[in-house]
Write a protein that binds this DNA or RNA. Sequence first.
DNA 1: CCTAGTTACTTGCATTTTGCAAGTTACTGG
DNA 2: CCAGTAACTTGCAAAATGCAAGTAACTAGG
Lengths: 133, 133
Amino acid sequence: MQVTNMKNATSKPTSESARRSDCPVANALDRVGDKWSLLIVRDMLAGKTTYGQFLESPEGIPTNILSDRLKRMERFGIIKRAAYQKRPVRHDYSLTPEGKQLGIVLRELAAWGLENIAGTKKAILPGSFVSKR
Amino acid sequence: MQVTNMKNATSKPTSESARRSDCPVANALDRVGDKWSLLIVRDMLAGKTTYGQFLESPEGIPTNILSDRLKRMERFGIIKRAAYQKRPVRHDYSLTPEGKQLGIVLRELAAWGLENIAGTKKAILPGSFVSKR
DNA sequence: CCTAGTTACTTGCATTTTGCAAGTTACTGG
DNA sequence: CCAGTAACTTGCAAAATGCAAGTAACTAGG
């Protein structure tokens, strides 16, 4: 009768459920306004689906943060977690329709960075990801 | 011989100058990937220019964070600070061309929030700000 | 001159988040 | 049984956030 001791580790970033205002920008930032969430979405848009693959990205996300963000984004309906095999049960993550819509934001953010921050290169991703402008 | 004791208060968010990768998204997030920076940019796009006006926004940004973000974004060349009167010298803030380009990102982020987060309303801003989709 | 008011910040903490390193769990393969 | 792997969790120390109160530089009024 395994009780899977699920204490919370880093599970409460941006104080859940306390809406700062009804502004769509503020609310969007309360969901993905941090240094890591959108990088995970970027990786998923680039085709990555597993915990291990996210860890391989050059930015080096800490494991506890990755674990926390995956749970948070799942709660927010941005991503979906599902077992892709049992007998070692393994899960993978995928973007929900809502999550996929963040692609537009990502594309613009990437275009902005590419244009305004010296030394940035699109590489890494499949290529088609960043718009030219 | 006033030495204006300018100790640093909260002046070092996202560890300055340590590039996480050369990805434009990661670099953009190191500049504006937090809960407040883009809200200030939103306010500036909506016409606000002074410290006091930023404080009036419904999200209630803490004064030390506002002060810090204004300095940070100025260092990054996203905004510009200038005296608009002397004898009580007063400054105001405005977006640089780079900062204005964030408008596109903001517009998409707002559109995403409006479409995917229940209870968000465009209001607050001049209106023309959020795209319809 | 003295007092109140205003704008724009700075400072001091207490509380949260981060980030790093080291476990832990559940299996598989040999 | 032992090594190996994927996916996490846990323990902290360090850094960022948020709140309340204090300060600097003036102006306006009495």
